[in-house]
């Protein structure tokens, strides 16, 4: 009797010890091992992430996402894109609705407290777009007294007016697309935001606008990823390194912004680090 009971107890102890060792590995799996990926991109940003008529997504961010997915071992057929707005980006990552976010997503110290960032895959800079033929604006300082349009929720005009002390007149519209329309119609004098965003609009109507090419801030476009997935973040960084080494990054920048007159930087950006 005693023997059997002791054997039973020993067996139970073994099972307990074994299961104790395994529970630590439970959690969300790393995207480094994923076979399918859901990636959040912008749906309304020409040149970066735009939903096309047949429901697909197209743009620089989309192509970068596909390259990264492939480097992670996920084929085109395993990637599902979903449109995300600027406000949703943190939530969809925290809730696990998407695996990666590439949506003109600037890395900031504040955001880094809730999500992790691979990359940046590009360092955009705040620049100025004016109507073609307007030669009065050559730098930020020349915006003095001009009508400057910014999209709702953006901080770009403040950066000119408050942080640079340039006395421009702020006009606010729901989105940058509306600002671009106003600029085309001559209702405002300038639109100032990330150069890649401006270049995207410019590519759509190259004859109408002119990019000033006087950058004055850095916006580090990162790949948003769940905060605890450090291995995944490191894998994304390796993919981005490859993308610059094999010339794909330079090719994609030319493909999407080549005609805009924007000075693109084709060497790999300084990464933010995953921890």
């Amino acid at each position: 009797m005693g023997l059997r009971r002791v054997a039973l107890a020993a067996g139970a102890a073994l099972v307990l010890a074994g299961s104790g060792a395994c529970t630590e590995a439970v959690g969300r799996p790393s995207i480094a091992d994923a076979t399918r990926l859901v990636i959040g991109v912008k749906a309304d940003q020409p040149g970066l992430g735009l939903r096309t008529e047949d429901g697909d997504f197209a743009g620089f961010d989309v192509d970068v996402a596909l390259y990264i997915a492939e480097e992670l071992g996920v084929p085109r057929s395993g990637v599902e894109f979903v449109g995300v707005t600027s406000q949703e980006r943190e939530d969809v990552l925290i809730d696990g609705d998407v695996d990666l976010v590439l949506a003109t997503y600037s890395i900031t110290q504040l955001r880094k407290t809730v999500v992790a960032f691979g990359g940046p895959y590009y360092v955009a800079r705040q620049d100025i777009l004016v109507r073609a033929g307007d030669t009065t604006v050559r730098s930020v300082a020349d915006l003095e007294g001009k009508l400057l349009c910014q999209g709702a929720g953006s901080n770009s005009a403040n950066r000119v007016i408050e942080e640079r002390g340039v006395d421009a007149v702020r006009i606010e519209r729901p989105s940058y697309s509306d600002c671009i329309d106003l600029l085309a119609e001559g209702e405002v004098d300038a639109v100032s935001t990330d150069d890649l965003i401006l270049a995207g609009y410019l590519e759509a109507a190259p004859e109408s606008f002119h990019l000033v090419n006087a950058p004055f801030t850095s916006e580090k476009y990162g790949v948003g990823i769940a905060k605890e997935d450090i291995a995944g973040c490191e894998a994304v960084n390796r993919a981005i390194t490859r993308m610059y080494q094999d010339g794909t990054a330079a090719w994609l920048l030319r493909k999407w912004f080549g005609d805009s007159g924007l000075d693109v930087n084709t060497s790999v950006p300084q990464f933010e680090g995953c921890t």
Partner: peptide, 28 residues
């Protein structure tokens, strides 16, 4: 550290099993 925690668990299991067998032998 993952391998180390598995290792520690195995040591615990092996020691428990030997302990149990020794007790069983003595009871017998």
């Amino acid at each position: 550290s993952a391998a180390a925690s598995v290792g520690t668990a195995l040591v615990a299991a092996a020691a428990t099993a030997l302990f149990a067998a020794l007790i069983a032998l003595q009871l017998f």
